[in-house]
Design a protein around this nucleic acid. Structure first.
Lengths: 220, 220
DNA sequence: AAATATTTTTAGGCTTGTCTAAAAATAAAT
DNA sequence: ATTTATTTTTAGACAAGCCTAAAAATATTT
């Protein structure tokens, strides 16, 4: 069994998430930016993670996760998302309040806690933001979903996720009545600023390009 | 708002617990022993806690909690015990499995988490080991309870708590069918080794003085 | 009251994780 | 192909939390 600190785990998660978006090795600067630290600190940590065989790191060439590092990062995401489900479903927090708690809870160590939590929550497959929760074997469910910006006027979709987990965005969605499972019809796209005219349960709204970019939908 | 690290919080809790048992200021060696660190490390930490006004520390004279330190320690014990209730009641862990998890969970920071957890658990007043859970205002419920070693033969009691939270003891109690709420009658005390002959739901057992010492009962 | 024993603190070091500034390597541009 | 710009690494520092060994303070004996 391998011991990891919270700091190491956070770096692993960041490497995982950057790798998801961009192919190829993760560069030091990108990692430092994601972690809110200096490039020097990132280099430092990469050496430690490399010593622990959690990443494959080549000087000046960037870093990738080893199978073990990938397994660990996946497990952290699983834990984070399961705790988010707990906080929303059981403790009644709003979807914009749970991130910081989950960020701490995901580092709690010990046998079986995650799987028991998973059982207790009835094996949820998506977290309160619509993100998939890997199962105990690290398997992911990928749903076909597209950004609102890719729809053509007249198309309809069901909200399945968000690509911005910050409070201001989530609270803005709350105000508009946008939540997971809500149906949205794209009425028109304004040529000037690419904003979206949409219909949500009968009412019409205008969403900026930025907001539209951060909304994932399953097409009807 | 005051920021504390997990290490600081653990020292505060240790000071609180030693203060509960012995009157007067807590001495450096006692604290170091409780924390499993050296006296030098304890001195080091006492300076930090003193700077943060969480303890009143006088060189060579020992340490006491300030009102703020007491408030914080109480809150940590509240959090620890609420999480233990969660782990046992909701996740189905045994009473000997939850300590290490709760030790980590008690350090999770953020507004309202504890009170929401308390609501969700229906404001339990005792944890799975029978220890009282302070309320949101830091008020304690003290129950009249005595050790099995103080009973005279013929007296009966209901198990209300344990004074040893380690797995070996708790599992031993499981084997004997001793749990919170179970009735025990002291039949006899062996003069030679002070062991207790007891009756538990019809069956007779012998408990060592050590085990008897660690069992709390409410007299019938 | 002086000597001895115990407790506590100080001094100096180590690791983790951070920083800034300088050096080195790589990439881009002329 | 050199120069210039960018990225990355190294070097040296610092705080938190721990250590051991030595010094200082307090307590106990004689």
């Amino acid at each position: 069994m391998l011991l990891t600190t919270s700091a190491e785990e956070n770096y692993l998660k960041a490497i995982f998430k950057i790798s998801e978006k961009e192919p190829g090795p993760v560069l030091t600067n990108a990692l430092a930016a994601a972690m809110g630290t200096s490039a020097a600190s990132a280099t430092d940590m990469l050496k430690r993670l490399s010593d622990k065989q959690l990443v494959a790191y080549e000087k000046y060439r960037g870093v990738t996760l080893t199978p073990e590092g990938d397994r660990l990062a996946t497990s952290l995401i699983r834990k984070h998302r399961l705790w988010e489900v707990f906080l929303v479903e059981k403790l009644g927090f709003a979807w914009d309040e749970v991130h910081d708690f989950a960020e701490q809870l995901e580092h709690v160590q010990g046998d079986n806690l995650t799987d028991r939590l998973d059982d207790y929550l009835n094996h949820p497959r998506f977290d309160p933001h619509g993100d998939p929760i890997p199962d105990a074997q690290g398997r992911w469910i990928r749903r076909p979903q597209v950004r609102l910006t890719t729809l053509t006027p007249g198309q309809k979709g069901i909200v399945t996720g968000v690509d911005d987990h910050t409070s201001p965005f989530l609270q803005y969605l709350d105000e508009l009545g946008i939540a997971l499972g809500v149906a949205i019809e794209l009425l028109d796209r304004t040529a000037y600023d690419q904003s979206s005219k949409v219909r949500i349960s009968g009412k019409e709204y205008t969403l900026s390009e930025k907001a539209s970019q951060n909304l994932f939908l399953r097409l009807e």
